[in-house]
Design a protein around this nucleic acid. Structure first.
Length: 711
RNA sequence: GGACAGUUAGUUCAGAGGCAGAACGCUCCGUUCACAUCGGAGAGGUCGCAAGUUCGAUUCUUGCACUGUCCACCA
């Protein structure tokens, strides 16, 4: 029979469709806002949160790609000049680490290669994995403008970095100084506070007797979790108001194991109620102690090196690793009978967020960016409501963080990254220094900002900045979002985006964090392979219900696959009915109660979908569309249509199908586009009209740029 | 230590001051008629715990417990 020729097979096979359709889209040029038809005037922009070029995508990327593509595709259909700008992040430490890991397998270290060779290796890695990642986005159906793909270390971007750094430098906001900083001895670099991950460890609280110099057998007992740092103590501190110790202030103790004389001082930072109320002061390896040291002009004695080993200590401890030194110090204290007691003590230990090594605090010469003014810029925009978080509850922690923010240590002692643009400087910039410029550096800043007025008028920067939505994960709100906001205000004098959508964090079924090392990660491409891209997208979107967390299950993706098939088959049925008819796009007149009901339901579905998507309620809109299509349309109306069998019924079948395809397209672009392409051209020609309302023949292009349904 | 979120069917989640819902899974029945990736029927829940408000609470309030995340210089 002829009717089967429209869509020949009863089962939808994504593998036969997806690559073909993606090529059709790419060929159409419509991913590129400049090539969209004239009706697309007002810009709508999303810049992708650039994935690290460390490896492959995880399910969180798939979630975010789905969200962004839904937003972009709907806006495109609504007639916006849409740009979804893609790119990747060089991700300094992270990428350097994966390449080092690879080298280690070959028995080499980065030092064997030397800086230049090593960086060459990282570039090779970047080429391979950067492209892989972008291809993975394509497989998900992402409608990015690939002609505008950027990388945080491409040529233009490097100019942006220099411009930004020198700008701050000129303002006097960048300074260099020796400070106690977070130090990862494995990565051999400083880290900002945001790059630490605290993990609870069961340690001990050691109570150590420090003997008074001129007090027969008198002691002052200090409590510490880090006995090995006592080798660098330069004072003991108590609270001035602490009656117990009042008499001792100003006296001298003899530091055990080292035999150095150090003073007992008073400082308000000491908590009377913790431990014994007396603390050892190690200005070189603790932040509070550093502050106390500054105030009291104490000597700072560094005893832990950049490689995490003991230095400048009595011979027997020299060169020991920190943990080994701790053991030996405790043993020696026991031998000398000056370890009063030890208590179990659980505390939060800072770890390097990239390699999980315990982070030490050590004094080091670093570059800092003053945050006082910048933090204000970032706060104001959110307080004034110029930038809105969705959900709104994320604004509070954002503002809290900015209120207490310290100067930003922007130098890193690694090799992979932007060199600090100062003569003779070997360090590179924190990778987040470059991501902070992403929304405008990707659009041509600073080059186009300096162009002639005429060029600038036409520039991407002018057209697409500020962008509209930023969709990202909540763990980088401070690390990234805050910094983009103050950078945007500082350099562009304008917000970088209006809406910040914080998507759910994807957890495993058991509520655990997804982790490659634990083997609990899910590869989105395997899902695409097994269920198809539309099913994966729909299944993910279906689960986005506004919670902070999302326990990921494939059940919904299976449902998505079945839904694709349902859409496919319903379309086959409708096409078999409308074969010899001509149909108009305008709303048909209902003749029966069933007609009336389905048109009403469609109207309601359009309204709800618009409302939900405007509010970033992706799950709700997916539910609404599913219920409408499967139940209202297929279960009820299509069944009814088999009884009604009339020309009027066919008109309604076609009308409802076409509008459903449009509504579903942002969620399931492949299957809907494929069906649209199979709709008879004759029919469609009659529904497409020119500006003057005359029919235009054979103008059918893509569902991707069809007009979004209106009520 | 602070903040935010969650706790409802075997699983993942909706829901609303008045008979407890969906999807997947499970059980039974049904293939000439778009689709077995389907259709129909069914089993399955003290709505985390406790108190309060109310004629009535799974829903509102408070407290607690547990889970997750973010923030935090208590050694």
């Amino acid at each position: 029979m002829q009717k089967t020729s429209l869509i020949s097979n009863g089962a939808y096979n994504p593998k036969e469709v997806e690559d073909k359709i993606y090529q059709l889209w790419e060929k159409s040029g419509f991913f590129n806002p400049d090539k969209l038809p004239p009706r697309h005037k007002k810009p709508f922009t999303i810049v992708i949160p650039p994935p690290n070029v460390t490896g492959e995508l995880h399910i969180g990327h798939a979630l975010n790609a789905t969200v962004q593509d839904i937003l972009i595709r709907r806006k495109r259909m609504q007639g916006y000049k849409t740009l979804w700008l893609p790119g990747t992040d060089h991700a300094g430490i992270a990428t350097q680490n994966v390449v080092e890991k690879k080298l280690r397998k070959e028995g080499k270290s980065r030092f064997d290669l030397g800086r230049e060779k090593f960086i060459e290796e990282v570039w090779k890695w970047k080429e391979e994995y950067g492209n892989k990642i972008l291809n993975q986005f394509k497989k998900m159906g992402s409608s990015c403008d690939w002609s505008r793909t950027r990388f945080t270390m491409d040529e233009g971007y490097s100019l942006a970095i220099k411009e930004a750094f020198l700008h701050y430098h000129k303002k006097g906001w960048i300074y260099r100084g020796k400070r106690v900083v977070n130090w990862c001895s494995r990565c051999a670099t400083s880290l900002s506070d945001l790059e630490l991950e605290y993990k609870e460890e069961k340690g001990k609280l050691y109570y150590i007797k420090y003997p008074l110099k001129d007090g027969d057998n008198n002691f002052i007992v200090v409590a510490t979790t880090r006995p090995e740092t006592m080798l660098g103590d330069t004072a003991v501190a108590v609270n001035l108001k602490d009656e117990r110790y009042k008499k001792l202030i100003g006296k001298i103790v003899v530091l055990p194991l080292v035999n150095k004389e150090i003073p007992i001082i008073a400082d308000e930072l000491v908590d009377k109620n913790f431990g014994t109320g007396a603390v050892k002061v190690t200005p070189a390896h603790d932040l509070i102690d550093y502050q106390i040291g500054q105030k009291h002009k104490l000597e700072s004695r560094q005893v832990i090196s950049e490689r995490g080993k003991m230095i400048e200590v009595p011979k027997k401890y020299m060169d020991l690793k920190v943990e080994e030194a701790r053991k030996m110090v405790v043993e020696d204290l026991k031998i000398q009978n000056i370890l009063e007691k030890e208590e179990d003590y659980a505390h939060q230990v800072p770890k390097c967020y990239r390699c999980n090594t315990t982070v030490e605090l050590i004094p080091s010469l670093q570059w800092f960016l003053k945050m006082e003014e910048l933090a204000k810029l970032a706060q104001t925009q959110v307080k004034k409501g110029k930038i809105k978080f969705h959900p709104k509850s994320f604004e509070k922690p954002y503002l809290d963080w900015l209120k207490n923010v310290k100067d930003w240590c922007i130098s890193r002692q690694i090799w992979w990254g932007h060199k600090i643009p100062i003569e003779g400087e070997n360090d590179v910039l924190d990778t987040w220094f470059s991501s902070a410029l992403w929304p405008f550096a990707t659009l041509g800043w600073p080059a186009s900002a300096k162009a002639t007025a005429r060029q600038a008028r036409k520039s991407d920067l002018k057209t697409f900045y500020h962008t509209n939505v930023l969709s990202t994960a909540r763990d980088i709100i401070n690390l990234w979002v805050a910094r983009m906001i103050f950078s945007g205000m500082e350099f562009m004098k304008e917000i970088p985006f209006e809406d910040v959508y914080i998507h759910a964090t994807v957890l495993t079924r058991d509520g655990q964090r997804m982790s490659k090392s634990l083997g609990t990660g899910v590869d989105p491409l395997k899902l695409v392979e097994e269920f198809g891209a539309d099913a994966t997208r729909f299944g993910i979107a279906y689960q986005i219900m506004g919670n902070q967390d999302m326990k990921f299950v494939t059940d919904n993706i299976l449902m998505g696959k079945k839904f694709c098939n349902k859409i496919w088959n319903a379309s086959r049925f409708v096409m078999s009915q409308i074969q010899n008819s001509k149909y108009e796009i305008k709303k048909p007149t209902p003749k029966t109660p069933a007609d009336k009901t389905i048109l009403k339901a469609l109207e309601k579905t359009i309204k709800l979908t618009d409302k939900n998507l405007d509010n970033f309620e992706f799950g709700k809109s997916a539910h609404t569309l599913y219920d409408f299509f499967w139940h209202d349309f297929c279960d009820v109306y299509i069944e009814k249509s088999k009884e009604q069998k009339s020309e009027a019924t066919n008109k309604i079948l076609f009308y409802v199908l076409l509008n459903s395809l449009k509504l579903l397209h942002p969620f399931m672009p492949f299957v809907t586009e494929e069906i649209y392409q199979k709709l008879p051209a004759l029919t469609l020609a009659s529904i497409r009209r020119s500006g003057r309302g005359r029919p235009v023949k054979n103008k059918k292009k893509c569902l991707m740029i069809e007009e979004w349904p209106k009520n």
